[in-house]
Design a protein around this nucleic acid. Sequence first.
DNA 1: GAATTGACGTTGCTATGGCAACATTTGGAG
DNA 2: CTCCAAATGTTGCCATAGCAACGTCAATTC
Lengths: 229, 229
Amino acid sequence: MTIYLPALRRCSLFHNMADETILKLCQCLGGTIRQYPRGTILLLAGQPVNSAGIVLTGQLHAEQQTLGGEHIIVANHTAGSLFGDILMSGSRLSPVTLTATTNLTVLYFAMETILGDCGQHCQCHLQLRQNLLVGISEKFWAQQKKIGYLSMPSLRRKLLSYLLDQRTTDSDLDIFLPYNREELASYLGVNRSALSRELGRLQKEGILTFHKRQITILDLSRLLTQLSR
Amino acid sequence: MTIYLPALRRCSLFHNMADETILKLCQCLGGTIRQYPRGTILLLAGQPVNSAGIVLTGQLHAEQQTLGGEHIIVANHTAGSLFGDILMSGSRLSPVTLTATTNLTVLYFAMETILGDCGQHCQCHLQLRQNLLVGISEKFWAQQKKIGYLSMPSLRRKLLSYLLDQRTTDSDLDIFLPYNREELASYLGVNRSALSRELGRLQKEGILTFHKRQITILDLSRLLTQLSR
DNA sequence: GAATTGACGTTGCTATGGCAACATTTGGAG
DNA sequence: CTCCAAATGTTGCCATAGCAACGTCAATTC
């Protein structure tokens, strides 16, 4: 288990915990490790879920099938990601299919052991549950932000409000996008070429400059004006 | 406390629990009741949160201020609603402002008492935490659905995919909307009159009929075609 | 170095849908 | 019943943005 510490340290569940605590908890929770070759389906949409998993090595994604038959990727999990925590809907049937996009190692915990008493009254168990809740809350508010962008009435506003949120601080003017154009367009629910066009316009107007994924805001006050009117 | 049982029974936290269990838990968790006149701000965005609340009587809403300065309503809570459960983001600062839209009675629980051991190893405490998680998950997937609608490329598809989800069963063809036109348009992120126009077109094409909030699907297969192409 | 591929920018065409302004309906209030 | 206000339907105008098609650039392969 010690080999996987780097991944475990990154997991939201173990946020702010000492290495020994993490290892002790893994034991206490009775986690089981599984490995899957690339392409394996870990869980099919519509199946019940009773455990959460932490990605130790590799990558997986959660995708949902729309009524139209397309697949939308709800989440992408890399080393340290917790998944399955919010798959327990009321009926306990998963809305998404989980697929390994690379060879994959996963550590599973039964949800009940996280939520239940371990009988030892350990402080760390409380912390664990708080971390669980904080982690889920963050997923929720990340989604809420996305809804904010999607609800904007124009492409320009979608883009600008997204860019503002991507700054690391309020005074930061440089942004490095985590997506390429295609992915960004898809995230914002707009057409790729229309997105490129809008970026070009913003540059021509002197509001920002960009090169590939690197974007620099030139005129923050004018940018903000665009959003409020 | 017994007066409030009807509201408590409806709360996701106490789903599938007997009345005595609910009352016992309320005591065990050390809940405190507060009352507020209409218009009171219960929590200002940016403030830390350490407790969750259940609406006993009245109504409140959570609203978020956008960068542009507008307010968007994130949630609306009526009797039995649990709120504050997902306000614990990483920094523990609330992204939303909570305001009483009517006179209001609320039962608060410290989050720690829900997550921590009560020292009695009661089975109901485990159930409580599971209910908490299920409740939050449901909020997440409700949001996910909204994202699905907003991501659709046309007003028609936004509307139709929403309508399909509103059916109570897969074979049900009658829908009673929970929103008026204005609210529905806002929810779907489109213009009200454009929404009305699209509804009119769908009716003219014989795909559905409607009268106010009552909508009836006439040609389900053709409706589905519209979504897939 | 030629060729291939993938990411990104550019542009003309056109449908979609936002907007505004007005018409119609409905459900109370008096 | 009459009047009023709120909700909803209707329509013309036009900007926005989707779409397709193509051009450019850089990296990689052979």
